[in-house]
Simulated scan of single mutants.
Amino acid sequence: MTTEFILLRHGETEWNAQGRLQGHLNSSLSREGLRQADALAARLATLPFQALYSSDLDRAAQTAARIAARTGHDVQQDARLRERGLGILEGLTRAEAGQRHPDVFSAYAEGHADYVVPEGESASQRLRLALHCLEDLGARHAEARVVVVTHGGVLSALLRHCLGIPPAAPRAFAVLNAGWNQFDLHAGGLRLVTWGDVSHLRALSLDDT
Rank of each mutant, 00 (worst) to 15 (best):
L8R: 12
T13A: 05
G19Q: 04
G19K: 10
R20C: 04
R20I: 11
L21F: 06
N26K: 10
S30L: 01
G33P: 02
R35N: 09
A41M: 02
A42P: 03
R43K: 15
T46L: 05
L47H: 13
Q50S: 12
S55M: 08
L57I: 12
A69C: 09
G72C: 04
Q76V: 14
Q76F: 00
E83R: 13
E83I: 10
I88W: 01
L89Y: 07
L89I: 14
G91E: 07
L92Y: 08
P102K: 13
D103V: 13
F105W: 07
E110H: 14
A113F: 06
V117W: 09
P118R: 14
E121F: 02
E121M: 03
S124V: 12
S124C: 07
R128I: 08
R128V: 07
L129F: 08
H141V: 06
A142L: 05
L155Q: 09
L155G: 05
L158R: 08
P166I: 11
A169H: 15
L176I: 10
A178I: 13
W180H: 15
N181S: 10
Q182H: 13
F183I: 13
A187V: 07
G189C: 07
L190S: 01
L190N: 04
L192F: 04
L192D: 02
L192I: 10
G196V: 00
D197K: 12
H200Q: 14
